[in-house]
Design a protein around this nucleic acid. Structure first.
Length: 491
RNA sequence: GCGGUCGUAGUCUAGCGGUAGGAUUUUGGCCUUCCAAGCCAACGACCCGGGUUCGAAUCCCGGCGGCCGCACCA
């Protein structure tokens, strides 16, 4: 059984994620997060907020999901997300018409459907899988369309969170200092109506993105704080290289892969993913080849992670130049250029974008932190970092006895009042409860035993080695906070 | 979307024309002083819709969903 199949099974069993609207037979590409998964997701999002927004004093917004057509025409999504397709009249399979024609005739397509149809009939192109006759070319769009108001003005569910940041940029710029650089981030749902989504939460039709747009003056493609990360290392797969190699942020700049700003965020990203619990040996940044780089971008670096599905891309970093803002200026007729006091001139800001998919990260995390049964633990478990685990601590009375239950419940209350995300259970044997806890990756368990009644102490069990430390109840909350901060999960 | 394959309690699985059996989970009870102990009891399933048949979980068709391959993948 492949690892992803087991992960999927565990996900269902332990409430990480489940197919949406399951009782009706779910539409593929939609998943709900259960209690455990939901906590993990919030932890990852909050860690992102801390590292990518709060630490640098950047701004967060939350923009609309339903987006009028003109916005996405400006961004290029209405055209770029629309693919010409032909279907086979015999076997009904669908093929990208432009790819088919370009492959057979070796002519670059001019973007017109008529051209495709002409080329197909002139060259006698048939279905690549069965040789059958092909239909007329038509377009399919990967965006979910909808309508606004009584007259159903054409609109789409946003295919990325970024556009809402670009359209809000002029006002945010005015309200927050009228200076560059300015960085604005957003965490939210995006939608893509994939033709046939597979691979569980790796490719969903509705998914969560964490995106940061860093606006800067093209004359000054620099970032404050770069010195602090210049020597930080990350694994990098350069263009044409067979194997990733360790590089510093400084080297990324020197080798012309990206500017200082891009390198700064790559270094941060690497740190974020390591903190989240991904295995450094199974991930690397890849500098995309020119022909893979999207329409809006000058240089793209993806973070790729090795999983049982193969390589999964979990973030894209793009130097979007001034493409988006210029286009929105053009389409809206509004002035997007900003005046920079220091430089004494007007510019359309350039943008470096950090775009991360939370759901894919969660999947990779589940795979990388999954641990098999072993001599030490006779059950499968997850080695989540304390900062990510669905609960910070569990509280167990050694046995289901009233004299142990009362102090246990009072400790739960105290921990929760201290802002510690606490799980409580008194079901079954203590060993079984420890096992259950390991299975959802909770790092600490506090056990109330008969000694607790005598001297007001409890034990803290560490997930990874099962060893315990006895502490005084009044010190418990502080101790737990300290361990979590240290990322400690063994005695 | 095409081709292959599969679909039995929450999970894993047996049965493959005569109305379902086990394991585990869950719930309650007894017992139990630290790593999935034991005993008793209870709950819980044939993916959906048609067809063939006296009778379908079992055979046939269609749908939905999973997995693999192709295509698609900001």
């Amino acid at each position: 059984m492949e690892l992803h199949e087991r992960i999927f099974e565990l996900a269902l069993n332990r409430s990480f994620f489940i197919p949406s609207n399951e009782i009706y037979g779910s539409a593929s590409g939609f998943y709900d997060y259960g209690p455990a998964g939901c906590q993990i997701k919030h932890n990852l999002e909050n860690a992102w907020r801390r590292m990518f927004l709060v630490e640098d004093g950047f701004l967060e917004v939350e923009s609309s999901i339903v987006t009028p057509e003109i916005v996405l025409k400006a961004s290029g999504h209405v055209d770029e997300f629309t693919d010409p397709v032909v279907s086979c009249k015999k076997c009904n399979s669908k093929v990208r018409a432009d790819h088919l024609v370009e492959d057979k005739v070796k002519i670059k397509w001019d973007g017109k459907l008529e051209t495709l149809n002409a080329l197909i009939s002139d060259n006698g192109i048939t279905c690549p899988s069965c040789g059958g006759e092909l239909s007329e070319a038509y377009v399919t769009n990967l965006m979910f369309s909808t309508g606004i108001g009584a007259d159903h003005a054409r609109a789409y569910l946003r295919p990325e969170t970024a556009q809402g940041i670009f359209t809000a940029f002029p006002r945010i710029f005015r309200n927050h200092g009228t200076k560059l650089p300015l960085a604005v981030g957003q965490i939210g749902r995006s939608f893509r109506n994939e033709i046939s989504p597979r691979k569980g939460i790796v490719r969903m039709r509705e998914f969560t993105q964490m995106e940061l747009e860093y606006f800067f003056s093209p004359i000054k493609a620099e970032i404050e704080g770069f010195e602090a990360v210049a020597q930080k290392k990350m694994r990098f797969l350069k263009r044409g290289a067979a194997e990733p190699e360790w590089m510093t942020a400084q080297q990324v700049v020197e080798e012309g892969i990206g500017n200082q700003i891009m390198a700064y965020f790559l270094a941060k990203e690497w740190e974020y993913y390591v903190l989240a619990g991904l295995d450094q040996e199974r991930m690397w940044f890849r500098h995309l080849e020119e022909n893979e780089t999207p329409h809006y971008s000058e240089s793209n670096v993806d973070l790729e992670v090795l999983t049982s599905y193969g390589v999964v891309e979990i973030s894209g970093n793009a130097y979007r130049t001034n493409y988006d803002l210029s286009r929105h200026g053009q389409f809206s007729g509004k002035e997007i250029e900003v005046f920079l006091q220091e430089e004494g001139k007007k510019v359309v800001p350039h943008v470096v974008e950090v775009s991360m998919g939370v759901d894919r990260l969660i999947f990779c995390l589940l795979e990388h932190t999954f641990r098999e049964k072993s001599g030490e633990k006779e059950w499968e478990w997850f080695d989540f970092p304390p900062a990510v685990a669905p609960y910070e601590v569990a509280v167990f009375p050694l046995m289901k006895k009233d004299e142990l239950k009362a102090p246990a419940e009072s400790i739960v209350l105290t921990l929760r009042e201290n802002g510690i995300n606490t799980y409580y259970s008194a079901i079954g044997s203590i060993g079984k409860r420890y096992a259950r806890l390991d299975e959802i990756g909770v790092p600490y368990a506090v056990t109330i035993d008969y000694q607790t009644i005598e001297d007001n102490t409890v034990t803290i069990r560490f997930r990874n080695d099962g060893k315990q430390k006895r502490v005084k109840i009044p010190e418990l909350a502080e101790k737990l906070k300290k361990y979590k901060k240290e990322g400690r999960f063994t005695l």
